[in-house]
């Protein structure tokens, strides 16, 4: 198992994950974006200034979203491949598809779930442009803290394993501890001050946030499972499993 082999599989798994996320987007997210855009449109008609020239057409935005998801999938596929290669011999999982699933699961929590709890996704028409820099800083800070927490938990796992604690005990302690630390971080970080406009129905907001989280779950699950399958078919991985038996 060489690094270029892993990298190619990471890119392939990322492209597949991005494509599946794009299908999810077209079926479940775009209808909600369209609803929100209608509300935004109605708001603009209420004002005196005329309609502004669109920089990119609606079709362009939908196609752009598909392309963006493909690129984001490939980006996280590359990152997954490198982290997998670097940590493969140290992760507390026996099989390569388990390692891939563990890393992708951590990726989902760190890059999607933690930020989504603090700053839930919003449809167009929600969000104060003036606070976007502040929200971006909170978002990125959560990701950095999440990575630090995951690295700390995994290295603590090895230390505890050295002291003879069994896998179930270690995972219970470390997952529980990580959730506790993450909860404290989430409470301490400042929240977004943005108010949601009155013309956005609560149901639309709720459905959009669920759909967004679902899309991210599809992206990361597809990435972790596809990469795991592709990597498990490599000869070296099978050798290792034979040795493990």
């Amino acid at each position: 198992m060489t690094f270029p082999q892993l990298l190619r599989r990471g890119v392939a798994a990322g492209a597949i994950a991005g494509a599946l996320a794009a299908v999810y987007l077209l079926l479940l997210v775009e209808p909600l974006i369209e609803k929100a855009l209608v509300i935004e449109e109605a708001r603009e008609h209420g004002h005196s200034h005329g309609h502004e020239e669109e920089l990119v057409s609606r079709l362009g935005q939908v196609l752009g979203a598909i392309g963006t998801l493909a690129v984001v999938g490939i980006i996280f596929g590359i990152v997954l491949a490198v982290v997998f290669a670097a940590s493969r011999d140290r992760l507390p999982v026996v099989h390569d598809h388990g390692r891939s699933a563990l890393l992708a699961g951590i990726g989902f929590v760190v890059f999607a779930l933690l930020p989504a709890i603090k700053l839930p996704a919003n449809p167009p028409g929600v969000g104060d442009p003036d606070s976007v820099d502040q929200r971006t800083v909170i978002y990125l800070a959560l990701i950095v803290l999440g990575i630090a927490l995951a690295v700390a938990a995994l290295s603590l796992d090895r230390t505890l394993a050295g002291h003879g604690l069994t896998g179930p005990v270690r995972s219970t302690l470390l997952i529980g501890g990580s959730v506790l630390v993450a909860a404290v971080v989430l409470v301490l970080l400042p929240a977004s001050q943005d108010a949601v406009a009155d013309d956005i129905p609560a149901a639309l907001l709720w459905e959009f946030r669920l759909a967004s989280l679902g899309q991210l779950a599809v992206l990361w699950a597809a990435l972790g499972l596809t990469f795991g399958v592709l990597v498990s078919r490599l000869p070296a991985a099978r050798d290792a499993e034979l040795v493990a038996r």
């Binding site: 987007l25 974006i33 935005q61 598909i66 996704a121 759909a211 967004s212 989280l213």
Partner: peptide, 26 residues
Amino acid sequence: AVLGAAAGFLHEVTHDARHALGVPCH
């Protein structure tokens, strides 16, 4: 912050995906 003026076009192209991915957009 990084791209300056070109960010406007990129923002519009990636607009739907940004909302869908839940990243701070506007």
